[in-house]
């Protein structure tokens, strides 16, 4: 398991480079439109309110700030998309494993010690030349934390949640992915406690790569269905 100990930050910085050609890294939408002065004001207001809440609950011995730090450390350094990426890479080279993931992903992650909060009831779906899967949570921000870590900001954005179900092709196009008309798009709206992981198509010319090398090609967004691997 030592190979899985790539930190989340490290994984994201790797995949940032992989994705940088697709969408400019600038902010857009609501966040971008906010005047910076007002933005600063709101941020300081949230910071003050959070500080007050933490301070009072700590004084009352209801929370331990060390536990709060442990939560952040867990999602920053222990779980993250490197776990899902390794599952995807193995599914590409191990037909039996791929089938087990598609049939009962929950059993697989239990076996691998990767079950956890918000993601034990995992379902794995796979992309092919003729099928493209896209995951969303229209009601809130449900996401498979144990295998992908915390959801990216775009996934929680009102625009993505609103449009992924009514115009998945338009969303994907804006994300830089143009799908042919004869490709079937399957959108998965996580309305209960079932969580989804997408197996993206294996990139061409990767026949000789090891599982480690393949896992390094798998981006977070490809496992949500928001991009194809080149």
């Amino acid at each position: 398991m030592s190979k899985d100990k790539v930190s989340r930050r490290e994984f994201l910085s790797k995949t940032t480079m992989a994705a940088s050609g697709v969408v400019a890294a600038s902010t857009a939408g609501a966040a971008g439109a906010e005047a910076s002065g007002e933005h600063e004001h709101k941020q300081s207001d949230y910071a003050l309110r959070t500080k007050a809440l933490v301070s009072v609950l700590t004084k009352k011995n209801i929370i331990d700030p060390a536990a709060m730090d442990a939560v952040v450390d867990f999602y920053e350094n222990r779980v993250g998309p490197h776990i899902g990426a390794r599952m995807v890479a193995r599914s590409w080279v191990d037909e039996d494993y791929r089938q087990r993931l598609l049939d009962d992903a929950r059993a697989v992650i239990r076996e691998e010690g990767n079950a956890g909060v918000q993601g034990t009831d995992l379902v794995v779906v796979e992309n092919s030349e003729k099928v493209h899967n896209l995951v969303v949570c229209t009601l809130c921000s449900c996401y498979p934390w144990p295998v992908l870590g915390l959801p990216p900001s775009w996934y929680k954005d009102t625009a993505y949640r609103a449009q992924a179900v009514i115009d998945p092709r338009g969303v994907l196009q804006k994300f830089g992915l143009e799908l042919d008309d004869d490709v079937e798009v399957r959108v998965w709206d996580s309305t209960a406690e079932v969580r989804y992981l997408v197996i993206p198509e294996r990139p061409p010319g990767t026949d000789d790569l090891s599982i480690d090398a393949l896992a390094a090609l798998v981006t977070r967004d490809s496992m949500i269905g928001a991009e194809k691997l080149a």
């Binding site: 009601l139 990216p152 775009w154 625009a159 609103a162 449009q163 992924a164 009514i166």
Partner: peptide
Amino acid sequence: LGGMDGFTLPARDQDFPL
């Protein structure tokens, strides 16, 4: 929110969410 129009889709950011 499912099915509503008019929002502006953000870029696919790659930052750590916190």
